[in-house]
Simulated assay, not measured.
Amino acid sequence: MRLIPLQRAAAWLAALALTAGLLAGCSRERIHQQESYVFGTRVEVLTWDASEDKARAAVAEVLREFDRLHRAYHAWEPSELTALNQAIAAGQQGIPVSPELAAMLTEAKAIAATGDELFDPALGQLIALWGFHTDTFVPVRPDPAKLSELVKTHPTMADLTIADGKVTSRNPAVQLDLGGYGKGYALDRAAVILKARGIANALINIGGNVLALGSKGDQPWRVGIQHPREPRPLATLPLRDGEAIGTSGDYQRYFELDGERFCHLLDPRTGQPARGTQAVTILVTPRPAGSTQAGTLSDAASKPIYLGGERWRDYAKRFGIEHALRVDAAGQIEVTSALHSRLQYGDGIKPTIVVN
């Protein structure tokens, strides 16, 4: 039995290498970097060419916002979200929620519908049953009877009605967990705060979910895509103003038991950890006002693309995503031509298939 922490050493190494690359050749007076630990992961915010005082104040506000979001919408510690889950389980109807949570649930419901409910924040009970509702989870196989019963109840975001600041669920088995949505939402909130504070050039990294503002001087921000099985980047790519990348992988939160890998990405069709894909990375370009923003979409849309297996490209197209990469269970790399043209692959790495 092997327990893997929420962030593998390999992911930390990649993040450190990324930071080193960003700082290389830069005047330390021109770049400001702050780190924290929130959402169960390492958070890093870098700004370029802003005064120390201005950058420090802006990033401090971002980190306070991250802490607020973490506490307000935590999936298993007391929060507005857990209070809503308790009310749903009790069969209450027309449950009042904050305007922010109502908007988040409305958006998450639309994303879920686009992806055939493979991205499904209603699966909180299933996530807990597999032991992932803790920061220091213990490897466990769920009781088969309980697992079968829960799969049959089929909780989905489609069970929710959100109107006039109130939530009603037709299925008491719905238990909301915004872990596959919240980091992306936080990226977009950070972008709003930084721009309001006059920060035009920044890079926000929440455990590998990354959003760029502006540039790093006359160069784009350059970020790494983690190799799912090796402690090094699979590739690097330049990020332009307003672009975001999101990755879903079986190497981020998982445990090994009896020689099998069980990751936190659960397939709602079977109730089992997903198989067939090691990792998916998508790049989302800036979105029109009023639509799901780049950070949020990069986080949430990566889940149905990951769970879609061989249909990954179809799911990417549904979300209008042209820049995507998949590493299948055998380690073969499939990448869209749009993303392929922007990547710089690591030594000895090349894609197996390039698709339109």
Rank of each mutant, 00 (worst) to 15 (best):
I162P: 06
L129E: 07
F137I: 13
R141K: 14
P144M: 08
G131T: 14
G124S: 01
A102G: 08
L150T: 03
K146F: 06
T136I: 13
V167N: 01
T136V: 15
P139N: 10
G131S: 14
A128H: 02
T156P: 01
M157W: 02
P121W: 01
A128Y: 03
G124P: 01
A112V: 05
E149G: 09
K109R: 15
P96S: 14
A163N: 04
L105G: 05
F137H: 14
K152H: 07
E149D: 14
A158K: 09
D164Q: 15
V167P: 04
V138W: 10
T168C: 11
V167G: 07
T156A: 08
Q93P: 01
A102N: 12
A145P: 10
D143Y: 09
V151S: 12
A112W: 03
A110E: 15
H154E: 13
I111K: 02
A103H: 12
A145N: 15
F132Q: 02
V138P: 05
T153N: 10
I111D: 11
L105F: 13
D164Y: 14
D159C: 10
K166P: 07
P142E: 13
M157A: 07
A128C: 02
G165Y: 04
A158Q: 05
S98L: 07
A163D: 12
I162V: 09
D159R: 06
I162F: 07
L101T: 05
A113T: 02
P96N: 13
A113W: 11
L123G: 01
E100A: 13
A102I: 10
L105M: 15
A128I: 02
I95S: 06
D143H: 09
I95H: 00
E149P: 03
V151R: 07
G94P: 01
W130A: 07
W130Y: 02
P99D: 11
L160M: 05
K146Y: 03
P121C: 04
L150W: 06
A102H: 05
A110F: 12
A108D: 10
M104K: 04
W130I: 08
L160K: 03
I95C: 01
P96R: 06
I111E: 12
G94I: 04
A110N: 15
V167R: 00
E100P: 08
S98E: 10
A110M: 13
K152G: 03
H154D: 07
D116K: 01
T161V: 13
A110K: 11
G124I: 01
P96I: 05
L101Q: 09
A128F: 02
S98G: 15
K146C: 14
A145G: 12
P139A: 13
L118Y: 08
P139K: 05
G131R: 11
K109T: 12
K146V: 13
T114N: 05
L129D: 14
P144L: 07
D159K: 04
E117K: 00
L150D: 08
S98Y: 13
H133Y: 08
G131M: 08
L129I: 12
D159P: 05
T114H: 10
A110D: 15
P96W: 03
T156F: 02
A128W: 02
Q93M: 06
T114Q: 11
S148D: 10
T161C: 06
D164G: 14
G124D: 09
E107M: 07
P155R: 03
Q125W: 05
H133P: 02
I127S: 00
